[in-house]
Design a protein around this nucleic acid. Sequence first.
DNA 1: TACTTTCTTTAGAATCATTATAAACTATAA
DNA 2: TTATAGTTTATAATGATTCTAAAGAAAGTA
Lengths: 137, 137
Amino acid sequence: MNINIDFVNKLRTSGLRPTKQRLKICEVLFNTEKTFHFTVNDLSKIISEKLNQKISLATIYNTVHAFKKKGYLKEISMNSDKTYFDTNTTHHHHFFDSSTMKLIDLSDDQVEKIKINKALPGKKISSVEILVKVENE
Amino acid sequence: MNINIDFVNKLRTSGLRPTKQRLKICEVLFNTEKTFHFTVNDLSKIISEKLNQKISLATIYNTVHAFKKKGYLKEISMNSDKTYFDTNTTHHHHFFDSSTMKLIDLSDDQVEKIKINKALPGKKISSVEILVKVENE
DNA sequence: TACTTTCTTTAGAATCATTATAAACTATAA
DNA sequence: TTATAGTTTATAATGATTCTAAAGAAAGTA
Ligand SMILES: [Mn+2]
Ligand SMILES: [Mn+2]
Ligand SMILES: [Zn+2]
Ligand SMILES: [Zn+2]
C-alpha cells in the first residue's frame, strides 16, 4: 500500500496517470533493490504467470516505452534477435553471455577510462558503451 | 572476369559452390577497396536497382548468413531496429550517428587499451566492442 | 456530485523483418 | 551422362512490434 504511493507520485510527477496497469508494472520493475534486464516477453510472462494478472501486450509495450521516454528504463544496444530493457538507468556497460543469452552489468568504475583518439567533425558524443561477449570456457 | 576467379576460389575453398547469385553478391560486397556497412535491405536494393538483377530475398539472406558463418562478414552488435552487416571483419569499434542512422568505423588502434576489472568465473571473453553514439552538435 | 475532457487500455488487425518449406534447378563428381 | 548433394526460388509461416478505433478510467470543473 505505502509502496504504491511512491509509484503514484512517480507517475503523477511524470505526467502519467497512475492506472492499475502502470502501478502493477512499476511493482514488477522497481519494487526491488536489485536492477535487472528483461525483454517485453519476460515482463509479460511475469505478469500473467507469476502474478496471474492480465495486462494486454499493447499496454505493456506502451508502458515500457513511456517509462523509457521518462528515463526510468534504458533500452540496451546490442543485437541478438532480442530487445532488452534495463532497470539500471545509470551509465554502465554489459557482458553478454552467449551461452545463456543473459546480460550482466559491468559498472562504469570497473572499466578504466576509455580514450578515443578519433573525433567526428560536427558531431558530439552522446554515449560510449562497451559490450563484452562471453561464453563458457 | 579475372576478378571473378578470385571469388570462385574464395567460395570453393569455403565449401560454397560458386553460383552466379553468390558471385554477384561477392562483387557487390568485396569488389571494392573500402569496407562498408549495410543492411539486407540495402544489399537487396543495390542488386535490383543499381545492377538490375534479380536475386530472391531468401537467397540474399542465405548468402549473407553463409558469408557471416565463414567469417567474410560481421553482424554488428547494436540496436536501432535495423540489423547491420560489415564487410570489415577485422577487430574494430563503431560510431553510430543517430542523426543519419549510419555506422562509422573506429579502428582498434584509435582506442586506448580497454581494461576491465571484472571477471566472470567459468566464462571467457570472446569479444570486446565499443559503441559510441554521436549526434549533431 | 454530475459533467466534460483527455488519457489509457484493449482486442484485433496490420506491418515488417526474417525464416521455413518444398519444388525446380544446377554444380560437381562418378 | 547420370547421380548426388547443394542451391535458388516463390510462397507461406512466424514472431515481434505497431496501429486502430472503440470502450473505459482518471482528472478537472462547476
Ligand atoms: Mn522499441
Ligand atoms: Mn541474422
Ligand atoms: Zn544493465
Ligand atoms: Zn565496421
